[in-house]
Amino acid sequence: MRILISAAGAMALAALLVPQAAAQTITPALSTTMQRVCAAQTTTTNVFDASGTLPTAPSVVGGTRSFYATRNGEGYSFVQGASQPTGDIELRANVGPTGEVSWAEISGPGAAPIAAAMAPAEFSAMAQTLARDIPERLMVSRTFRPGEQLYPAGLGEQIIGDLTRSFGLPFPVTGNVDVPYIGETTSADGSRVWVWEGRMAMSGSGLVQGRVTLGLNATFLMRVEHDVATALVRMTTMDGTVIVTANGQRTLETRTIDGFTCQISPQ
């Protein structure tokens, strides 16, 4: 029922946005000659901290993100880069004509400590999962009508499960992803973009070291815009809260706004 309601809501919003174009089915065609370079920023504010100490100002971390795809047989080779204070990370992947990931690898100085913390097989599996989560991969061999989900059935939940295991969260976490296609609109710089917007949530709890039940609840609103001409991401934002509890008592609540805006240029 919740999905039906969400889809209906999305349809209504899409109608408000662009009544003409929204009714159409879209078929993104990923460019293999253009690339995106994005300025990223994450702002985190402690809303509540059981220690009683709150930071005087939000923490702001900047960086850049990039992506380009090239032809590789019938499929694609993807290169996704991230520059951030903890070091550069590059994710390379080969993707088949229907979007399946056949190979993925993470490298770069920022990845070295993560690799050192994992068994090689775990690290390789994480690369595969991250490759499945590249936004442009979700465009390959897909069509969307308003209300249809960005993540194919079950994929979002599966990625949440896989990644939380990779990140080493000490208890199982379940997720829910509801990010439907809204419609087409015009971005601030005048380019035509397709819009997906919705909600992502995850929660979990578990007895840790036999002594405390630790809980995690996170809810975020997500919006992503893909360029109509290239299917590359133009802009994405996430805005939400994370609440950590210990034995049912709220221990920490943070609000995080994370996003990046991109310039598209020839490769």
Partner: peptide, 20 residues
């Protein structure tokens, strides 16, 4: 999606006790 999970994981790591 990975940003979403990383944010949640960091928040979990930042939980703290009251200060004596």
């Amino acid at each position: 999606m990975k940003r979403f999970i990383a944010i949640a994981a960091l928040a979990l790591a930042a939980c703290a006790q009251p200060a004596p």
